[in-house]
């Protein structure tokens, strides 16, 4: 088909990567923070849904999208802290508890969200980077939500914070070798709980992005597993915040490329296409792992490594 305009297609793909990838970025940064402390929280999927619902509800009730984002973060933080505290108890498995949290989170969100399916809440603002262009498509593609920039800033902050601050070092020490941290007088359980709460906060914000910006409304089918996908994404990114950004964009692009290809007339095998990020992550894991050795970059205390 000669009529395909490739430059527009590419631009649309980039825009799609940002639009679809932003919630991935927040949830994966949250999961990265959690896992750096040595815990894994699969419950971020449930937290994402709770964040989407509470963000939408508060934005509608207060007529302020930003208060919605804050509420979503706080709700997520509370659930994250809950995960953190309970998993600090002996013999509580963090993976299973995360799955129970998915059930509880979605249940709560669906129950309290019934009243907010019909009303329309205010939407988050975006920055028009394409104001210079005459082409409506370019303008639309370069209309990027503020949360994305906040996400990028957070990525850089986390990248720096984990390397260069005392806090970051403590978190990594707790995540890599809790015993040494304890010997130095830190309390691993407390540090982990804080990290999990922080991770929950970010996942909640990711949920608010879904309900308040893109696609921009609350309903029960809103999340299509972004929260669980983020767990794979963090491994793909090797627990590096900067890589999380690239990986989120890549996962976002893979979500956007299917519809974009169909729009130009290539429409077979969309199920397989949608599974590409999973296959890719698996391939990367397979190629980069060695027997009897943990994934490079993986926090040593992570239950994934035991």
């Amino acid at each position: 088909m000669a009529e395909i305009d490739y430059s527009v297609l590419l631009l649309a793909l980039l825009a799609g990567a940002i639009r679809v990838g932003t919630p991935f970025l927040f949830v994966s940064l949250g999961e990265c923070l959690t896992e750096k402390g040595g815990r894994i929280n699969l419950g971020l999927e449930g937290i994402l849904v709770v964040g989407a619902m509470s963000g939408y509800a508060v934005a509608y009730l207060t007529d302020s999208a930003w208060l919605g984002v804050l509420a979503a973060g706080c709700a997520g933080g509370a659930l994250g802290a809950f995960h953190g505290v309970i998993c600090s108890l002996p013999r509580v498995n963090d993976i299973a508890f995360g799955i129970a949290l998915i059930l509880l989170g979605t249940g709560l969100a669906f129950f309290f969200g019934k009243a907010f399916i019909q009303p329309q809440a205010p939407s988050l603002p975006s920055i028009e980077l394409g104001a210079w262009s005459d082409d409506a498509r370019v303008r639309s593609a370069l209309s990027v939500n503020v949360l994305f920039f906040i996400g990028v800033a957070l990525t850089l902050l986390m990248h720096w914070g984990l390397r260069a601050t005392r806090w970051g070092l403590v978190l990594r020490l707790v995540g890599d070798h809790a015993q040494s941290a304890r010997a130095l007088g830190y309390r691993p359980a407390l540090v982990r709980t804080l990290a999990t709460a922080g991770g929950g906060f970010l996942a909640g914000v990711g949920g608010a992005y879904l309900s308040l910006y893109y696609p921009g409304s609350w309903n029960e089918g809103l999340s299509s597993g972004q929260g669980l996908m983020a767990v794979a994404l963090v491994i793909f990114a090797r627990w590096q915040p900067l890589n999380c950004l690239w990986a989120a964009l890549l996962f976002g692009a893979s979500g956007a490329v299917g519809p974009a290809l169909q729009a130009v007339g290539i429409s077979s095998g969309y199920y397989l296409f949608a599974a590409m990020p999973y296959a890719l992550t698996l391939l990367v894991m397979y190629l980069s792992c060695r027997p009897n050795q943990t994934l490079s970059g993986a926090p040593g205390e992570l239950s994934l490594n035991r």
Binding site: L89, L103, L104, T106, G107, L108, A109, K114
Partner: peptide, 17 residues
């Protein structure tokens, strides 16, 4: 219907905790 989901969630959270 979400009431059942909540009950299941609470049940498993407790069983695991």
């Amino acid at each position: 219907d979400a009431t059942t989901l909540i009950l299941e969630g609470v049940l498993f959270v407790n069983l695991l905790a």
